[in-house]
């Protein structure tokens, strides 16, 4: 089996598994919508305030939803021993992990992207910033999955890894939050956002190349320990 065959086989397998467990896939999405619904309830339904805070609210909710869905990235493979097979296979583990991350993003990240226009309407976001919101989510959420894979690889062997995962991963998410939130905000005022989107794209490509390596090292460590 060539490397590219292995890569696509893992993606296909993970998508099939996700399709069989549709309810689990819907959970992060529901969480995302629910958190955003809480903000108007907590802050009062003042259109101006919500409008001003909308980019930040949507992005923080996306951050939390991405973080909570991370656990499913390696959990079932860790439990049933598939991860050991990945490590034993002749292919580089980092590439196989990248396949898992891609599948995970298609299942957990992409739905956030698709539902976000609805939430933008909920929060009264100006029309011209919705495409920019979609662009930032398209460039930003894969970074969340990539960086998160390192944190989850470090903690997958732990019984109570959840809170530690948040502590490890959230500080590393800050640059994405800053640039994405700012791009959407600027777009609302009709300002150019090319710089922010370029930086997000740069972060994405850097993470795409670099993140699978420490994630693979951490997984090997978790399996031996």
């Amino acid at each position: 089996m060539t490397l590219s065959n292995a890569f696509t086989a893992i993606i296909r397998r993970d998508l099939v598994l996700a399709y069989r467990r549709r309810a689990e896939v819907a959970n992060p999405l529901l969480f995302f919508v629910l958190v955003i619904t809480l903000f108007p309830l907590g802050l009062g339904a003042q259109t101006k305030l919500l409008q001003a805070m909308a980019p930040g609210i949507i992005w923080i909710a996306a951050l939390l939803a991405a973080m909570l869905s991370l656990d499913s990235l390696f959990r079932s493979d860790f439990d049933d021993g598939s991860l050991e097979q990945f490590i034993l296979s002749p292919h580089p583990l980092s590439v196989l992990i990248l396949a898992k991350i891609v599948a995970h993003w298609l299942v957990t990240g992409l739905p956030l992207l698709l539902i976000s226009p609805l939430l933008a309407i909920f929060l009264g976001m100006p029309e011209q910033s919705v495409p920019v919101l979609l662009w930032t989510l398209l460039l930003g959420t894969p970074v969340l999955s990539l960086i998160g894979s390192i944190g989850v690889a470090l903690t997958v062997g732990l019984r109570r890894g959840g809170m530690i995962l948040a502590l490890l991963v959230l500080p590393l998410y800050i640059p994405v939050l800053i640039f994405a939130g700012n791009a959407v905000e600027m777009a609302g005022s009709g300002l150019p956002v090319g710089a922010q989107l370029n930086i997000l794209a740069a972060i994405l490509f850097a993470a795409l190349v670099l993140a699978p390596l420490p994630a693979a090292a951490a997984l090997k460590m978790s399996m031996n320990g």
Binding site: L154, L158, G161, I164, L167, A217, M221, N224, G225
Partner: peptide, 18 residues
Amino acid sequence: ALYGAIDDKRTASRAVAI
């Protein structure tokens, strides 16, 4: 926190190093 959470200290050290 990560160092404290992993019982085997050699493994914990490698996790923390990464």
